[in-house]
Write a protein that binds this DNA or RNA. Structure first.
Length: 262
DNA sequence: ATGGCCTGTTACACAGGA
């Protein structure tokens, strides 16, 4: 079973690229982030025409996540509040960043973690608070299903080898100590990085800034991840970043990451 | 040293991204 994650930076702008990619790769489930569209305007038909069911959770202009699946998914739910007590969630579901569903028994969680803007900002505090709630949310899901896959755009590079230049990591968003610690706390419930099961080397990234010819120079960050529960980690067969779509005209700034289970 | 680009909005610059 193949599951992919891809921050497409607007599903409408990237529609042709995403449908082309699906037809070339025929993954079982594709998790999209930054769809940037309200549900009524999501291009559902374009995906149904190529054999995918679409489960969408969007908002106007910003954020937005979706699950595209060859087979219908079971138990699809939207936001933290489907799992965690409402008083714990507070306003953290206002931005549409969390969707989950079950495919062939695997609980697939698709996340768009807040960017955080800059270290010490209000958005940064929001990001850390959001990650704290995420831990509760995932712990509860894992207690109900030991086959848990958590993927998406985490906006965090966990290790220095995940960054082209870690020189300013402490002050840079996506690599500060507090962000890394917050994500480590989440992973402590029993999740492991699928990519690092197969690849130890540095220089593998999933996001490159549009500016300064960053992709051509491979000045990137690995911030899009597949985290697997122990059960699935043992079954993982491969995990690769597909840089081909990043080379196209008008690409997303992120590349898709594909994991194969069982 | 800085910022460089891209998307969506009811826009004709801005916020937000990372």
């Amino acid at each position: 079973m193949k599951i992919a994650t891809w921050n497409v930076n607007s599903v409408r702008t990237r529609l042709q690229q995403v449908t082309d990619w699906l037809q070339q790769h025929s993954v079982d489930v594709l998790c999209l982030q930054e769809t940037k569209v309200v549900d009524a305007d999501f291009p559902v038909a374009a995906f149904e025409q190529i054999g995918y069911h679409a489960y969408i959770y969007g908002q106007k202009s910003y954020n937005g996540v979706a699950l595209l699946s060859r087979e219908p998914l079971d138990s699809v739910s939207y936001g933290f509040a489907a799992v965690v007590e409402a008083e714990q969630v507070g306003d953290l579901d206002e931005q549409k960043r969390v969707i989950t569903g079950v495919a062939q028994g695997i609980q697939i969680v698709n996340l768009y973690v807040p960017n955080g803007s800059s270290v010490g900002s209000e958005k940064y505090a929001y990001k850390l608070q959001w990650l704290s709630l995420l831990k509760q949310y995932l712990a509860q899901l894992l207690a109900e299903n030991s086959a848990l896959l958590v993927c998406g755009d985490f906006n965090i590079a966990l290790e220095d080898r995940d960054i082209y230049d870690p020189a300013n990591k402490q002050t840079h968003i996506m690599s500060s100590a507090a962000e890394r610690q917050a994500l480590q706390q989440v992973l402590k419930i029993g999740l492991k990085d699928a990519f690092r099961k197969f690849t130890e080397a540095e220089g593998h990234y999933s996001w490159w800034d549009y500016r300064a010819a960053a992709f051509r120079r491979n000045l990137g960050w690995r911030i899009d991840h597949h985290y697997l529960s122990e059960l699935l980690y043992e079954q993982a067969k491969s995990c690769v970043i597909d840089t081909a779509p990043r080379r196209l005209e008008k690409p997303s700034d992120h590349a898709p990451v594909i994991v194969e289970i069982g």
